[in-house]
């Protein structure tokens, strides 16, 4: 991958060609891109936007440099799409919780096949495609850059897109979120005995929900250094049932939890 030099490589031709594709999602993150209104034209001026699913019904073009993918992979057709995007693009950016962690669609991942069989009794409507358990894009292809959260922050998207175009040594934070709350001097929910997933969630948003008085729901995804055991102990000490903590994690991290459980099972065997 040589994504960081896309801008210079493309200068000779014109500008880096970008496509924005949507999979299983609410399209809210694509909408968030438009919410950078004041700067949207400046951003579009740096790229050659070849395809944007939100605003176009044309098929994907054949050539492009950067693929932006929103949404979880939930069908065989989507698997083919992400593989095609990866094969043709020099850089792949996954945007939003659905694409990055499986997000809300990912909630359906546990016991998926049984539930499909139970619900449709073998007669899955063809509009659904060939369904499979919802998973993040990175389960199928290498993802070079991610824009986290549900929904994404418009300016986060611009920053990450620029990282793909021009390169950046800014590395994605792997610490969890409580430190960001402390920087903002937010009051901790655990002091009031209220569940908050900041304990294990990647510091990707600057504690946005807590800044607004709402506990973290984990939409940025688990930190690779998330210490679930210590977090459960924190819950217990604060009078929060750790089972509720585990349940709450399923909203945005079901896919990661299933993968971790599978790995643990394999290791035990």
């Amino acid at each position: 991958m040589n994504a960081t030099l896309i801008a210079s490589e493309c200068e000779a031709r014109t500008q880096p060609r970008v496509v924005v594709a949507g999979l299983a999602s609410c399209f809210g993150c694509q909408l968030q891109i438009t919410n950078a209104e004041a700067h949207l034209l400046e951003v579009l001026g740096q790229i050659d936007l070849r395809y944007w699913q939100l605003v176009s019904s044309e098929p994907l073009p054949d050539e492009y440099d950067v693929a932006v993918i929103e949404g979880a992979v939930t069908t065989d057709e989507a698997v083919r799409t992400v593989r095609e995007l990866r094969a043709k693009a020099k850089a792949v950016i996954a945007i939003g919780a659905c694409a990055v962690t499986g997000g809300v669609p990912g909630m359906a991942a546990a016991g998926f096949d049984d539930r499909v069989a139970g619900t449709f009794a073998g007669a899955v409507p063809s509009a659904c495609g060939t369904m499979r358990a919802p998973k993040p894009v990175s389960d199928y292809i290498d993802v070079d850059f991610t824009v986290r959260c549900c929904p994404i922050d418009s300016y986060d998207f611009i920053r990450v897109l620029q990282s793909a175009l021009y390169g950046s040594n800014h590395i994605e934070a792997d610490r969890t979120m409580c430190g960001d709350c402390k920087r903002r001097e937010n009051e901790c929910f655990y002091k009031q005995g209220t569940l908050c997933l900041g304990l294990v969630t990647r510091a990707a948003c600057g504690a946005r929900c807590v800044n607004l008085g709402r506990p973290c729901n984990g939409c940025a995804g688990l930190s690779p250094d998330a210490n679930l055991e210590a977090a459960r102990a924190t819950c217990t000490a604060a009078g929060v049932d750790p089972n509720r903590f585990d349940e709450a994690l399923q909203m945005f991290n079901q896919a990661a939890l299933i993968a971790a459980a599978d790995a643990a099972r394999k290791e035990a065997e």
């Binding site: 400046e42 611009i158 620029q162 610490r175 409580c178 430190g179 294990v200």
Partner: peptide, 26 residues
């Protein structure tokens, strides 16, 4: 928990990162 709350509240922790941020115009 790898959250860095300790150093955020610490009156003597001073470590920092240096990072570039482009304007939207690039």
């Amino acid at each position: 928990l790898s959250c860095t709350a300790c150093s955020a509240v610490c009156p003597t922790c001073y470590c920092f990162d240096i990072t570039d941020e482009l304007d939207p115009d690039g």
